[in-house]
Simulated scan of single mutants.
Amino acid sequence: MKKTEQGKLLKNIRQSLDKKGFSNFFINVRTDTYLKLFNPLEETRKRVNYYEQAGTDRIFIPGLNNILEIRLIIESLNIPLNKKSTKVLYSHPLIHNNTFKN
């Protein structure tokens, strides 16, 4: 399924949920760009922004471990990024001191 089809599907799901009184229903979207692409940053940024516009509440990106790329993605979003914490990430000053969080 192409991201445009996924985006349309997500938008339809969000609109249907809202219309039927389930506006608090949480939609978490996963994109596997960091597991499948060699240089995934730009494609990931495009996808997460597209999914955000479609009504996603949160994004999960398995394999995203580069602290600077995490920062770039977070800065381009208005919704939270789910990130499985590791000791290295948790102890990094930008994460630990809440220097960037959305």
Rank of each mutant, 00 (worst) to 15 (best):
T31G: 07
R58I: 04
P80I: 06
Y34C: 00
F38L: 13
N97I: 01
R47G: 03
G63Q: 12
E42T: 08
N28W: 00
R30F: 03
K36A: 13
I61W: 00
N102Q: 11
G55I: 02
L77P: 03
S23Q: 15
F25L: 06
L17M: 14
E5G: 12
R14G: 09
V88S: 15
R30W: 03
H96Y: 11
Q15L: 11
G21T: 04
A54W: 01
S23E: 07
I95T: 10
N82S: 11
K19M: 09
I70W: 01
E42L: 09
K83A: 04
N102D: 03
N24W: 01
T31S: 12
K20Y: 12
G63E: 07
I95L: 14
R30K: 12
L41M: 09
E5V: 12
A54M: 06
K8F: 05
G55E: 02
R45V: 02
S91Y: 15
I74E: 10
L37E: 12
F38T: 11
P62S: 09
R45C: 04
L17Q: 09
K101E: 02
E43Y: 06
I74G: 05
N12R: 10
K19Y: 08
R14E: 08
P80Y: 11
K87E: 15
H92S: 14
L81M: 10
R45M: 13
K11C: 05
V48W: 00
P62M: 08
N65I: 05
P80L: 11
L41W: 01
N66A: 03
S16A: 08
G21R: 04
R14H: 08
T31Y: 01
E69K: 12
D18I: 03
L81Q: 06
K46I: 10
I13S: 07
I13C: 09
L94I: 14
L81R: 06
E43G: 11
M1E: 08
N78R: 10
K84M: 15
K8T: 06
M1N: 08
L68S: 13
G21L: 04
G55A: 03
